[in-house]
Nucleic acid binder design. Structure first.
Length: 576
DNA sequence: TTTAGGG
DNA sequence: CCCTAAA
């Protein structure tokens, strides 16, 4: 915008339009934001066309006398096609705007606009917008309406989040008033009132002057700009990649942000959007949904080279710590560094966690985790999710809450980077590695179980027996934001299968071997699982009939084994 | 809410 | 891991 183009009204990159609704906080407004916004815009496209046409018809009268400010092209450009939820800039005016927008910071929270019902906004602008053709002798209401509609996102996204929160109720008084103010101005005011600019555009007195509103400024600017650019060259440019990317971005970001504000009580409500978003992506993710086996395979196949980063244990918390890329598909070295730092944090946390794994004050640790994450500025999202998930997980596994959890996890998942595995003291640890994140796509919420986790689970089962998943979760997995009680249950089920302690009899040798092929579990763990399976047959009530030879240390194969007996068994196993 | 079990 | 029925 410093390129000699008219910068009318855009001093310091902040448009007065900010003032339309709220005090200009710090929002940067860009033309983009004004011109491109959410998907609902197509609703207005028709009107826009109409306006464009009607305007074109009348522009003669307006522009002839002057410098063709209102040349049809200009209007067309302003009302240029609306496609796929964004304004396709396609002619001089737009190109120009685009150019000078490039320097702008793209609004981050553009999608906040859905805080205000577009319908309502539109309605308002229409109803409050008197015919603007006072000077033009045309009914340009549609034009104004659309213009206001366009303005809306600008308005909205410039509101600080908190402000938005407050104002997201149906257009508040201020907004309406503002609209009213704006609408009160005749088109002439809007277009040509301000004479302080030196652009070739004429100062058509005939259009009269009314105290220029904020809106006037912008509009003025737009038109002036177009007026100047028009005579020069006509270019048709597609939106830049950045333009597109940035535009698409805030939407997903928005989903995340929304979650930040959602309290547990309204999780369901607010995550609806996210849910939908997720669903939309399911298609692209479907191909990479790994079954458990696949996960295991992945775990095994991860090159050991990646184990080099030992500072980043593949602890669940590490998982959670891995912050959001904020939709940034490519991880830059710098960011990698950052993530590594996170890993360090996770490591620290983990150490504490492990040392206190069986002891008390899980809650405190949890808080620490969250706090630590919160300290990382852009990790808030993760932290919040983490907490949320944990909350629901700790006290409930209700489907509804799990839904939110899933979403959180889903988001997290997509953001996760490779997490080098931590080499366990297990002679045999196949290095559960956090799966390489699909840079582009989300993947199913699969967080591989680490041997440490499995051990904890086993310990939990041994302490509390099977079926007490909630308790085990609370006691041993309180620091693992993910791993709901259901997860524990599922894992245990899988462990039983893997250990072959269940239904092994019917398994063919070959099949068993095949299973072993992908089974990443250390023998010691499998053995413990088998032992426990004998002690606590999982499908409760179902008596085990196998494992007599396994229970070499068991005094009795009956299910009446005592806890002390069982612990003895465990000790002997661990002694191996 | 928690468990169990199917998908 | 997800979902849901059942307790």
């Amino acid at each position: 915008m410093e390129n000699g183009s008219p910068t009318i009204g855009f001093e310091d990159g902040t448009i007065d339009v900010d003032c339309l609704l709220v005090e200009p906080q710090n929002g940067h407004v860009s033309m983009d934001s004004a011109m491109c916004f959410n998907e609902k815009i197509p609703d207005n496209s028709i009107d826009m066309e109409d306006v464009s046409c009607s305007f074109g018809l009348t522009n003669t009268g307006i522009a002839q006398g002057g410098d063709e400010i209102l040349d049809r092209d200009v209007l067309d450009s302003i009302c240029s096609e609306v496609e796929d939820g964004y304004f396709r800039l396609q002619n001089d005016f737009c190109s120009m705007g685009e150019e000078y927008l490039l320097g702008f910071e793209f609004p981050e929270s553009i999608t906040n606009l859905d805080y205000i019902s577009r319908e309502e906004a539109l309605q308002t602008s229409v109803s409050y917008g008197p015919p603007l053709g006072s000077c033009l002798n045309i009914d340009s209401t549609p034009w104004k309406s659309n213009l206001f509609s366009i303005m809306e996102p600008t308005i909205c996204h410039n509101m600080p989040e908190t402000l938005v929160e407050e104002e997201k109720k149906p257009l508040n008084e201020d907004i309406i008033d503002k609209f009213h103010d704006i609408s009160s101005c005749s088109f002439g005011d809007v277009v040509l009132s301000d004479e302080k600019y030196t652009s070739p555009s004429p100062s058509n007195d005939e259009f009269g002057q009314v105290g220029p509103t904020k809106f006037n400024k912008l509009d003025n600017t737009l038109l002036k700009m177009s007026a100047e650019t028009l005579p020069t060259q006509k270019r048709s440019r597609k939106p830049t990649q950045r333009y597109i990317d940035e535009l698409a971005d805030p939407i997903s970001r928005h989903s995340k942000k929304r979650r930040e504000f959602s309290s547990s009580s309204t999780v369901k409500d607010k995550t609806l959007v996210v849910k939908d978003h997720k669903k939309c992506q399911m298609g692209s993710r479907a191909m990479i949904l790994p079954s458990e086996e696949e996960s295991s395979i992945i775990a095994i196949q991860v090159p050991f080279g990646s184990l080099a980063h030992k500072e980043c244990p593949n602890l669940p918390s590490c998982d959670a710590v891995h912050g959001s890329d904020r939709g940034n598909p490519t991880i830059k070295p710098k960011e990698n560094q950052k993530k590594r730092d996170d890993c360090m944090t996770a490591l620290d946390l983990k150490k504490r966690d492990e040392s206190a794994a069986t002891s008390a004050c899980p809650k405190k640790r949890e808080d620490d985790v969250i706090a630590a994450h919160l300290r990382k500025g852009d990790r808030q999202m993760t932290a919040v999710n983490l907490k949320k998930r944990d909350e629901s997980a700790a006290t409930s596994a209700s489907p509804k809450k799990r839904e939110g959890d899933a979403i959180a996890a889903h988001l997290r998942k997509g953001e996760r980077r490779t997490i080098p595995s931590q080499k366990k003291r297990d002679e045999y640890d196949p290095s559960f590695d956090c799966p390489e994140e699909e840079v582009s796509g989300r993947r199913k919420h699969h967080i591989l179980w680490t041997t440490a986790e499995v051990r904890k689970l086993i310990d939990g089962v041994s302490e509390h027996g099977v079926g007490r998943w909630s308790r085990i979760k609370k006691l041993l997995f309180s620091s693992s934001a993910h791993r709901t009680s259901v997860d524990l249950k599922d894992k245990w089920r899988n462990l039983l299968k893997a250990s072959g302690s269940q239904g092994q009899g019917s398994l063919q040798v070959g099949e068993r071997r095949r299973n072993l092929a992908w089974r990443p579990l250390p023998k010691s763990i499998l053995r413990r699982v088998r032992e426990l399976a004998n002690v606590y047959p999982y499908p409760k009530g179902r008596k085990h009939k196998i494992g007599a030879r396994i229970n070499r240390d068991s005094p009795d194969i009956s299910t009446d084994i005592t806890l002390s007996d069982y612990r003895r068994i465990l000790r002997s196993i661990n002694g191996d």
